[in-house]
Amino acid sequence: MTPPEAPQDGTNATTGDTAPAVSLRLAVLTKRADFQRASRAKRVATPGFILQMRPRRAGEPSDAPIRVGFTCSKKVGNAVARNRAKRRLREIARLTLPHRGRAGMDYVFVGRREATATLPFAHLLADLERALDTLHGVKK
């Protein structure tokens, strides 16, 4: 099997205005203390998930402009359901936060029982945009 030929006119194979996937990778929260700080911050509950947002202080390490965390308790379901819910939350965050998130913020997504894994994907995306508008104080 031979690889496909590159375009001869000098154009790239990718089109559109999206940045390459490498630059869209978000820094992930892993420390329990970060999740606990976010749980005391502003939050918005949507039918598909709960979104918590916390501004980082000046003294905190800032390895990335936007950091994001994902959590699903056993109430969400068994391991298969929790993993599916977190995969879906990671994808909506990857698609939306680089463009709509604010630098210096930590965002934590909390999965909801029988909703995060089953709602239509477009519904989750719309929920995230509404939640970000609410948290950022955007009037519509």
Rank of each mutant, 00 (worst) to 15 (best):
G77L: 06
R67L: 12
I92G: 07
T71E: 05
G77M: 05
H99W: 10
D63I: 15
P65M: 03
N78I: 00
G104W: 14
D63Q: 15
R84V: 07
I92V: 15
L97N: 09
R90G: 00
N83Q: 01
G69C: 14
V68E: 11
V80R: 13
N83I: 00
A79G: 09
R94M: 08
A103H: 12
A79N: 08
V76R: 02
R84K: 15
A103T: 14
G69H: 13
K74A: 11
K74T: 12
R94A: 08
A79W: 06
H99A: 12
G69W: 14
N78Q: 03
R84Y: 11
F70M: 10
A93S: 14
L95F: 10
H99F: 09
I66Q: 13
D63S: 15
I92N: 07
A93M: 11
V68W: 13
L89R: 06
I66F: 12
S62Q: 13
A81P: 01
K74W: 07
N83V: 03
G69E: 11
T96R: 05
F70W: 12
L95P: 09
R102I: 09
N83R: 03
R82C: 07
H99P: 00
V68R: 12
T96G: 03
A64C: 04
S73D: 02
R87N: 04
P98S: 08
V80M: 09
G104M: 12
R67P: 12
P65Y: 03
G77R: 06
K74L: 04
A64M: 05
R88E: 01
A93Y: 05
N78F: 01
A64R: 06
